[in-house]
Amino acid sequence: MSIEPMHEESVDDSGAEASGSLAATDLHHVYGRGTSEEHHALGGITFSMNKGEFVAIVGPSGCGKTTLLRCLSGLMAPTSGSVMLEGVPVESVPKDLTLVFQDYRRSLYPWLRVDANVEFPLKNSGIGKAERTERVRQALEDVGLSGHASKYPGQLSGGMQQRVSIARALAYRPHLLLMDEPFASVDAQTRASLEDVLLEVWARRRKTVLFVTHDIDESVYLADRVVVLSNAPSHVMAEIVVDIPRPRDQIETKATPEFVELRAEVARLIRDAGTGAGKPAGDS
């Protein structure tokens, strides 16, 4: 194999501005300002993540997780506050970042075949044909879809479609991957297998991943660190370090006392957030 992604990322390993590091400072966002339907979604969110880290964001429903992700990715400008990716302010979507959306049905292009969907973003960045083909092949292999390259998304199951959109993100080779409840609309069986596909790929490719979910189990199972948000206007209530060793296993890991303990802690925090008992937790 000619391309080894681990090398390309280990080149700029030095300094605080390592590739894939993200810092959000005092993010506020208000929808429909000045109208009767004004909604204060983000109420001063501050957190940061390091290169190669897998961070999960959880919170009660309607707490503005999606808003946060849209602000972090540059799809939307926050009302106030700043986002820095590798030390550079995020104003539009940066080159080294991309998103995986929850609704795979609507984020894959149904008129492009699977391989063309994965290749589509690469054609923009002046990458040669040979390398594009290789990246597509490798990304599809990573998510276990090698045999389905020439199908249309409409011919695949929901779980497979979401794997295609993960493959598309992988082939793009961002330093930072943002995922917005990517597994929320697939069945439980598929979900578990997608989680493991993601962990495996992450272990192999060492991306920095920010994973938004409302599923507590999922956040603890996947992440190095869980950031718990409060109700809207949301702020960071707590950050919980998950020091469960990797590789993790759907059955064994979830049966360990540490896992059970952490899960209960996150659940308590979210419940308190829901009842409004939570207080702002200063970022470390």
Binding site: Y31, G32, T35, S36, E37, H39
Partner: peptide, 8 residues
């Protein structure tokens, strides 16, 4: 917010 902007 969508409906507000639409009514205007």
């Amino acid at each position: 917010m969508a409906s507000a902007s639409r009514s205007r």
